[in-house]
């Protein structure tokens, strides 16, 4: 039983199989990301009411919060796939981790800059060394560290091991980011959506926020598939399936 599951996993996680299957998924993720994103933007910019405290400036939330959530989500994908790659030596998992790093870094960067652009009119400063902001900045550096290790180490398996280990250790920082608004007195506001009580947000603001979060997630799915395909092509460049594929192009 376990043996047949193992065979099944190995078959479906072969880069060749993944390469064929992912081609069919990418258009679906792309189109749904676009549709959900456009509808979310429409609701967020035209339908959602003005905030009674922050006026129109709060509309940055519809990109800031999804970007910040994604920077954490992509990091967890990266760390978990690295773990799977290290423990079970599934090459596809290492490829997914490597493919996720630049995307996650771009989300972390976006979360930091949009947060800064929101902080200026609301707090009076583009940047404060606050626990939430600082731990998110460390997250960006963890992504950079992962990417630097990937490109600095020649041998692919050693590179995956070293960068994967960094990713796994860095999960501590994810916990810190999440609880930073509770553990420290920060300028950054506490959770408004992800908490046990019901979200303290107007439903007309909450729906576009959740739609934008979904759109970001679908977008990540499309981009990570394209990037993982690239990793598969590059890492298997001397294998027969890639050679046959390239010769047909």
């Amino acid at each position: 039983m376990i043996k047949s599951i193992w065979h099944w996993i190995q078959r479906f996680s072969s880069p060749k199989h993944f390469y064929g299957m992912s081609a069919k998924l990418i258009p679906w993720f792309t189109v749904s990301a676009l549709l959900v994103g456009l509808y979310g933007l429409y609701l967020g910019l035209f339908v959602a009411p003005t905030d009674y405290q922050q006026g129109e400036s709060y509309r940055i939330i519809f990109i800031h919060v999804p970007a910040a959530w994604m920077s954490l989500f992509v990091y967890m994908v990266m760390a978990i796939s690295s773990g799977i790659g290290i423990i079970w030596q599934i090459r596809l998992a290492d490829m997914v981790a490597a493919a996720s790093a630049p995307i996650g870094a771009s989300f972390a960067f976006l979360a930091l800059v949009t947060g800064s652009l929101w902080g200026k009119p609301m707090w009076g400063a583009y940047w404060v060394w606050d626990a939430r902001l600082t731990s998110e900045l460390i997250l960006l550096f963890l992504y950079f560290g992962y990417m630097a290790l990937q490109s600095a180490i020649e041998d692919q398996r050693s590179a995956d091991k070293a960068s994967g280990l960094l990713a796994i250790v860095g999960v501590v920082n994810i916990t810190i980011i999440h609880y930073s608004v509770e553990w420290w007195n920060t300028l950054h506001q506490g959770a408004t959506v992800a908490k046990f009580d019901k979200p303290s947000m107007h439903i007309d603001m909450l729906i576009p926020l959740l739609l934008m979060a979904l759109a970001f997630k679908l977008f990540y799915a499309a981009v990570v598939l394209v990037r993982t395909r690239n990793e598969a092509l590059y890492r298997d460049r001397n294998r027969r399936w890639v050679r046959e594929l390239i010769n047909e192009l």
């Binding site: 129109e56 800031h64 800059v113 929101w118």
Partner: peptide, 16 residues
């Protein structure tokens, strides 16, 4: 005009 926050809001969206 975004209620006077045009610079902050639109820079954020443009960067996105």
């Amino acid at each position: 005009h975004m209620g006077g926050y045009a610079f902050y809001v639109w820079t954020s969206y443009a960067l996105t």
